[in-house]
Design a protein around this nucleic acid. Structure first.
Lengths: 142, 142
DNA sequence: GTCAGTGCAAACCCTTTGCAGAAAG
DNA sequence: CTTTCTGCAAAGGGTTTGCACTGAC
């Protein structure tokens, strides 16, 4: 069973089910924020999520955006991407893949997983277990 | 030139030369901060650099630490490592290598470059050039 | 003397928190 | 009705900035 992640707008039932699957109570604001995150197949910062939500006429506060994004990330619904000391990006794609980060535009772009994958991890420091691997290719224009 | 009682591993002449090579005017504070950075083979945050400098009896202000670390990084003397949204780490090793980041301890550990290297970059987004590649393996204790 | 570097405190910006009111079950 | 969520504003914490002072050449 191959499930492809669609980039089109998801119905609120689908969104609600997705929240349920991750143990997240689907309130109105959470559904709206999930809608923003999953319909844009882009990487958004908290601020951008708030702007986008506001632009769509959703009524959400800044605190709720931050709290909700943190919750979604903790529950595994989305992934935090740390590439810029000034802001955290949120990636609706939780599958294994890496990123280009454009230092000039601040844009974060998915890297085709087939193009670069770390297949064998090196020995980890004693007493630790791997939690995740991030590869960031920093690029500049021209 | 008066020698101060310190634990520095590089002579101030060596440090001064290193700053010169990177086009950095070697002032007293810059030499002291370079001393802290290069004698500790660790990854330090700005705050840790300040603490360490103070502990050694160096007289540097917080603003100068931040300005100087930024300058060193811009000039290629040290490398910024972005792994934690709450602080930037500075790595005196500018050679190609990657990192383990311990989420429990906040510790950043060098990964032996022979253990993991990205030898062929995937095609970059159109109109961009690679600036650097960061691989972060996030680990937890136990 | 001139220009760059430094120190201090205040400003900044993103993010988190405290708490009262609203909503979900 | 009880518990959880939301919104507002204020606090928090790392980093940057404005400006006067100091130091290097």
């Amino acid at each position: 069973m191959v499930k492809t992640v669609s980039t089109q707008m998801l119905s609120s039932e689908e969104l609600g089910q997705r929240l349920d699957e991750h143990g997240i109570l689907p309130t109105q604001q959470r559904l709206q924020l999930a809608d923003v995150l999953f319909s844009a197949h882009r990487h958004l910062s908290a601020d951008q999520v708030l702007s986008e939500a506001t632009a769509r006429g959703y009524s959400v506060s800044k605190a709720t955006v931050y709290n909700t994004l943190g919750l979604f990330a903790r529950k595994g619904l989305i992934r935090e991407v740390i590439v810029d000391p000034n802001r955290v990006f949120y990636d609706p794609n939780t599958g294994p893949h890496h990123h280009f980060y454009n230092l000039d535009t601040g844009e974060l772009i998915d890297l085709d997983p087939e193009r670069l994958s770390i297949d064998s991890l090196p020995p980890l420091p004693a007493g630790t277990v791997a939690e995740g691997v991030d590869v960031i290719i920093r690029v500049r224009n021209q």
